Amino acid sequence: MADPTPVFLCFKWGKGYPCKYTNILYRALSDIMMGPFRLICLTDDPEGLAEGIQTQDIPPFAMDKGDWHKGMWPKLTAFAPGIVEPGTPVIMIDVDVLVLRDLTPMFDRIREKGGLHIIREIPDTLPRWFPKLFGKPLLSNSSVVGFVAGTQEHLYQESRDKSLAELSQFRNDQTYIHHHAHDRHNWPIGWMLSFKKDLAYHFPVGLVRPIPRPKNSYIVIFHGVPNPEDMAQGAFKRWGSPEKFGYFPVRWIKDYWTRYSRDTDR
């Protein structure tokens, strides 16, 4: 049987990230990927998504919708049967990432090793600098998750009928995946970088030193603040956290955001 076309799988629900984030991701992948791929968006509202993005309803999930954002629990529906053909290499990817290079080597890794591939949790500054004093066991970050369709369906089947209270022993979706995935692997260190934890500078360095574009990484992930859109604004608009912030655009992020944006996106 011919190797199935690899699939990127993303989510759009609620009001957190408007459709422009999904559209920018699709346009970036279309520009950067060297081979064929499909982008499937699991969504409760497909209106406004760019032509070429395939949409499906979010599979049935019993948790009260008001609790979905308390850990991004709907991401567990990515493992539901029937979304894509079994045997297809899949990368579940957050819509607020920046894609820097062709991601074909990531699909190759999924095919070769099998199992589930996830980012090792990225430590904060103090645990990174002083691991003996502030370190803790590192779990996983689910911004980019790779797997072969049909091999991790238990992650959905064992959670689909549970309430938030029944899953309360797990802080969020990525903790659940970390503890329940079959044959879990970490992506190689450096393939994915956190903008907030790996790239942004502490005050006052961030006020005077430009943040360079990573040379050898595949994806930059965002969690918490800032969002990539924040650093594509004009001058003197503050972005970032209390410790790491700036007042000017990050040039390569602004270029990326401008290149793949469209005025008609909501």
Results as ranks from 00 to 15, higher is better:
A2Q: 10
D3W: 00
D3M: 05
V7D: 14
K12N: 08
G14R: 00
G14L: 01
N23L: 05
L25S: 02
S30F: 10
M34P: 03
G35R: 10
E47V: 01
A50W: 01
I53M: 04
I53C: 06
I58R: 08
P59C: 05
A62G: 05
G66A: 04
H69V: 07
H69T: 11
K70L: 14
K70F: 13
G71H: 09
G71R: 04
K75G: 03
F79D: 09
A80E: 10
G82H: 10
I83E: 11
G87H: 02
D94H: 02
V95R: 05
L98W: 04
V99D: 01
L100R: 05
M106A: 14
M106H: 02
D108L: 03
G114P: 06
G115I: 01
L116H: 00
L116E: 00
H117L: 13
I118F: 14
R120K: 15
T125D: 13
L138H: 06
Q152M: 13
H154I: 09
L155G: 10
R160C: 14
L164D: 06
A165F: 02
R171W: 12
H180W: 09
A181F: 00
H185S: 08
H185W: 12
W187C: 02
P188Q: 14
L193M: 11
V205F: 04
V205D: 03
G206S: 13
G206V: 03
P214K: 14
G234L: 09
K244Y: 08
P249V: 08
